[in-house]
């Protein structure tokens, strides 16, 4: 077990270096620099510009800048935002709960609907239900997130006035000592209507973010189930006189879940990308929106640090999935 973990961590190191190079290089490929962006329409004299760039260390050769950055990273220093002057790591942990809450709800939404839909579609293969589900999954998978988000806002917020347009909770509510997880904070605050407000803010972004994972999970579950339902051990389960629920829901699904769990893990990475769009559409104050804002402002340390931290989260999730894989599949269990 320990060996397995160690080997996984060893793989992380090159990945980490790769991500750091990409994050470092790509933001510098964009035209403009932080000083120009900060100045905006005000005119900065070339001398003043050079002076600030020097102070920030951005006049150094790029390779030196990179090595310097890595040196600081190794000492746990993720840098400081040029714009807000706040530490990147502190900012990340302040905003991350919002993204985590959103992603978690989105994945729950996707799994809770996708797995049963896939199972029923497989059991009723070729039926109208199967065809409807698979058709809808294809549409869901192909839909651009920003368009889908705007569509739902127009419908639910604009036309029907059922949900708020943006943010995490009404301005009426404020939790000074909050954990950052709005649903939890609202629930324990005891303030009337707080939880309801938090939930109504969360539901649309969660649906939008969960749509692609939902489509992928439904399709994957269906195909895994179809494969498993033809297996000899499913026939054995039927021959034992077990109920249809036990045959499909226990004997077949348990085996079909093995590839599905892998898919779910991979979808977490997709969701981090999706969160950038979703959070921007719904003004959700999470790390997706934070990243977009800092790219626009050429806030180099934030982009670099943020991407690294997101990469770490994704790698962590995949590690958890790998461990989970051993739990649900006895054949690969590590002893």
């Amino acid at each position: 077990m320990f060996k397995f973990l160690l080997s996984r961590v060893a793989v992380l190191i090159p990945t980490f270096i790769g991500v750091s190079i990409v994050a470092f290089a790509f933001i510098r490929l964009l035209p403009g620099d932080p000083v120009q962006m900060l100045a905006g329409e005000r005119v900065v004299s070339p001398e003043r510009h050079a002076e600030i760039m020097h102070a920030l260390g951005y006049d150094q050769p790029i390779i030196m800048q990179y090595l310097d950055y890595i040196w600081r990273l190794l000492h746990g220093d993720f840098g400081t935002s040029i714009v807000t002057k706040r530490g990147v790591i502190g900012e990340f942990f302040k905003l991350f709960p919002a993204t985590l809450e959103l992603s978690f709800c989105a994945i729950i939404f996707a799994v809770a609907l996708g797995v049963p839909a896939g199972v029923f579609a497989a059991v009723k293969r070729g039926s109208w239900f199967d065809q409807t589900v698979m058709g809808a999954a294809l549409v869901g998978y192909s839909m651009p997130i920003f368009w889908w988000g705007l569509l739902l806002i127009i419908l639910f917020s604009g036309t029907w006035h059922l949900t708020p347009v943006s943010g995490r909770i009404d301005l009426l509510y404020f939790f000074p000592k909050g954990t950052g997880f709005m649903i939890y904070d609202a629930a324990v605050s005891g303030q009337k209507g707080a939880l309801r407000s938090a939930l109504s803010h969360l539901i649309l972004p969660a649906i939008v973010l969960g749509t692609i994972p939902l489509a992928v999970i439904a399709r994957q579950t269906r195909s895994a189930m179809l494969e498993v339902l033809g297996e000899d051990y499913v026939r054995t389960a039927k021959a034992k006189g077990l109920s249809r629920f036990r045959v499909v829901g226990i004997h077949a699904l348990r085996n079909a879940l093995i590839p599905v769990v892998t898919t779910i893990g991979l979808q977490v990475g997709v969701m981090m990308a999706g969160a950038i769009l979703t959070e921007t559409i719904f003004s959700w104050p999470g790390i997706g929106k934070w990243m977009v804002d800092s790219v626009f402002k050429r806030d180099y340390p934030v982009v670099q640090g943020g991407l690294l931290l997101i990469a770490m989260v994704i790698m962590f999730v995949n590690l958890v999935v790998d461990l989970l894989y051993g739990v649900i599949n006895p054949r690969v269990r590590v002893r």
Partner: peptide, 15 residues
């Protein structure tokens, strides 16, 4: 009750 030709495939690998 019934038993089958392929005993290994007839047992559920997850249980």
């Amino acid at each position: 009750a019934m038993i089958f030709q392929e005993p290994i495939a007839s047992l559920n690998p997850c249980f």
